[in-house]
Design a protein around this nucleic acid. Sequence first.
DNA 1: TGACTTTGATTGCTGAGTGAAATCAAAATG
DNA 2: CATTTTGATTTCACTCAGCAATCAAAGTCA
Lengths: 393, 393
Amino acid sequence: MVNDTRQLNRMAVLTELLRIRPASRKQLAAASGISAATVTRAVEQLIAEGVVVEASELVSVQRGRRAVLLDVVADRAFVVGIDLGASNTRMLLADLVGTPIARRELVTPVEADAAHLAEWLASAAREIAGERWQRVAGLRLGLPGAVGRDGSTISNAPNLPQVEASGFLELVRAAADRPVGADNDANLALLGEQHFGAARAAPTAVMVTIGAGLGAGIAIDGRILRGARGVVGEFGQLPAGPLGTRLELMVTGPGIMRLAAEAGVRLDSPADLFATDASEPVRALRAHFDQAMLIVLTAATVSCEPEVIVLGGGIAKSLARDLGRYETVLEHHLGAAPRLLASELGDFAGATGAVVAALHEVYRGMGIDERAFGDLPVATADEPEPEPADRPR
Amino acid sequence: MVNDTRQLNRMAVLTELLRIRPASRKQLAAASGISAATVTRAVEQLIAEGVVVEASELVSVQRGRRAVLLDVVADRAFVVGIDLGASNTRMLLADLVGTPIARRELVTPVEADAAHLAEWLASAAREIAGERWQRVAGLRLGLPGAVGRDGSTISNAPNLPQVEASGFLELVRAAADRPVGADNDANLALLGEQHFGAARAAPTAVMVTIGAGLGAGIAIDGRILRGARGVVGEFGQLPAGPLGTRLELMVTGPGIMRLAAEAGVRLDSPADLFATDASEPVRALRAHFDQAMLIVLTAATVSCEPEVIVLGGGIAKSLARDLGRYETVLEHHLGAAPRLLASELGDFAGATGAVVAALHEVYRGMGIDERAFGDLPVATADEPEPEPADRPR
DNA sequence: TGACTTTGATTGCTGAGTGAAATCAAAATG
DNA sequence: CATTTTGATTTCACTCAGCAATCAAAGTCA
C-alpha cells in the first residue's frame, strides 16, 4: 500500500505526544482525532519499540480510573548542535525532546586545515556527549558561509575557508561516525529563536545578524528558506550609499570603523557609535547607519512580511533601545511592520538552532511528517535557557 | 477514520491523470505507485462521478490488448480569471484543465463605485461564459493592490480605490452568485508565468512588474508567498537615492518623467530613456535607472534566491536587450544570479494567473492535495498562448 | 462497607479497502 | 488457429480502523 495507514496513525500519535508531552491515551486520541482503540494499539507498538514509556499516573482529582501518562523516552537519543564560528565554537548536547543537557564554548582552531578541523569537531562532540555518545543520533553544523540546498556544497565562507574544502562534511561524518548535516549559521540562529527564543510562535520570521559581517536567515511558515546556493538573506549585498556601496560595508563592525576613519571621526570601538552622549560628527555617522539599517529592515520585511525580525550579533546589542524607533519608521513607510526583537538566545542561538535542525533530521528518520516540524520540539515553559553545562570551560 | 485511504487514493489517481493526461489505467498505476486493482476501482468511481471519461483507445503499435485512454472531463467546469486593472480589465475563460476558451480585453469603468464595479464584473463574466455560465465554478480577481492573507482584506490600491471598499468582494460574489477569490495582480501574473509562461519549471521565481507602479510577486516551491497584509514584494518601498528616495519613484514611468524634468532633460515618453541613440544627459539618467533596477533585482534575488526573475509591465518591455547585462552584474555581485526573462504572457499574465488560482480553488474543492498544485494544470506544449477569443473586442 | 457512578483503557467484532495473483479480454504473431 | 503478449478485472486473503461492549480503577454515597 502506498499509504500505510497504520504507520501514519502511529506517527500522528507520536507527533501529538511530542507536542503535548506528557499525555494520556485519551488526550492523544482527542488531540489527533484518532479513535481511542487505535491510539491504544499505536501506543502499544510505540512502547514495544522503546520510543514511549508509561510515566507516573496523574494524581487523581476526579472520580474514575486514573489516566496513565505517556511520555517520549527522551534519553533514547541525543543530538549535538554545533555553531562553528570564525573565532568561537558553541556546542549543545540535547535529548530527543530538545532538553539541553550540556553546553560548551570553545575556541575554534582557525589554523587547522579541513581534516584537523573535522577531527577536532568530532572529538569535541564525543567529549560533550560523554557516555551518551553511543546514543547520539547525529550532529548538525552551523557554518559562517553559504550552504547549498543539497546541504553539502559550502561556499562563501571567507572567515573560515577550511570548511569550503570539498568533502569537509564527509570528513566530519567519518571522524564522528555519525550523520552530519550543515546549514548557514544565520539560518540556524533563526531556527533556534523560533523554537526557543524571541521568535517563538512566529512561523514567518527573519533573523538579521550584524557583527563582523551581515547575515540573515528567513523562515516562512516554519520552514527555513534555503536557496540553491545560499544567497538567500544576503541583504548585505544591497547597494546603499551614493556610489553603490554595499550595505555590508556600512552596518557591520569593520564597516563602521572604516566609515568613521574616512570621515575623520575617532571611534574606539563600533559600540561608540551608539553612545547617547555622542558628539555631533558621530551623530552624523549614526544617521547614516540608521538609514542603512532601515534598508536592511525594509528589504527583510518586503521579502516575506515576517511577523518578527530578530536582531542578533555584536552590533545589534547596541541597538536594543532603537528598535521601537525603527519599528515606527518601518510602519510609516510600509503601512505594516513586523515586530523587531533582540535575540534572546544570544551567542547560543546558532547552536540551539543546530540542535533543532538535528532533531528534525532524527524525527524525519522516525517517519514523522515534516509538516509537523514547525512546532517540534516545543519550548517547555521552564527551560528556555539551557541549564549550565556540567563542566564548562 | 481520520485518514480515508480510499479518498486519498482516488485523488492521487486523479492528480496523476491531470498531470499526464490522457493516460491508461496502467500508466496511472505506475505513475502513482498504486496497484492496478485499486486504480481500476478508483477510476470506476471517478467515471461514475462524471469526472473522468474513457477516451478513444490508443492505436495499437504492439501486440496485446489496447490500453484504454482516460481523460478528465474538461468541460465539466469552467473558471473565469480576471485581471482588474486601473485602466484595462482582462478576462479569460478556461476549462477544468486550463485550456483557454475565450478572452476579453475591456476598459475598466473607473468612475463606477464599488457596487457598480462589482455588477459590471459579474455581467462581463456572464457574457464571456455565455451558455457555459451554469458550469462556471468560480471567479478569481487580480487587483492592483494588496490582498491580505485571508484573501478578503484589500488595501493599498490607490489606482482603483473602489476595490478597497469593505465588502467589495462580497458584492462581486453576490452579483455573480459564484465563489470569488482575490489576489494581488503581480502575484497572479507570476502564477501565470509559472504555469504557462517564462517561469515554466521554475517553482521558485519572482516576477517584477514595472509600469505606472512597481509590483512584485514571489513564489517559493510553487507556492505564492502572500503576506498577512500584502507587503510582500513591495520592493518599490526600498530607499535608494541619496535622500532616501523610494525606488518606486525612480524606476516607474511617472518616476522617470519626474526625474527627467528635475534634471532638465526632455523626454517625450519613458521609453525614450532606453533609446540606443540617446543624448548624453539621457544616458546619465539611464545610469541612475540601471542602478535602481539593480537594487530591485538584488533585493529580489536575495529574498528567496529564485531560479528566474520575470520582468513584466510597460517599462520592462524596453529592457529586453539589457537583461543579459543585468544578469552579468548580478552574477558578479552575488556570485550566483537567477535568469532574467521577459514576460511571455504579457498583458494577459495576470488573467492567466487568475485562471490558475481559480482552478486551484476548484481542485481544492475536489479534494486534491495542495502539494500537487505546483504542477497543475500543466501547460500543454501546443497551447502556451490562448487561442483568439471567439468574439474579441 | 458495598453498591453505584464515573472515567480511562482494552478487546471482540465487523466492514472497508488494499495488493497479489488468477483470470478475463483483446490485440498481434507465426 | 493456437500462441503470445499486454491491459483490465476479479477473486481472495489479509490488514486495520472504529464502534461498542467490556474491563479496570478510581471516587461517592447511603
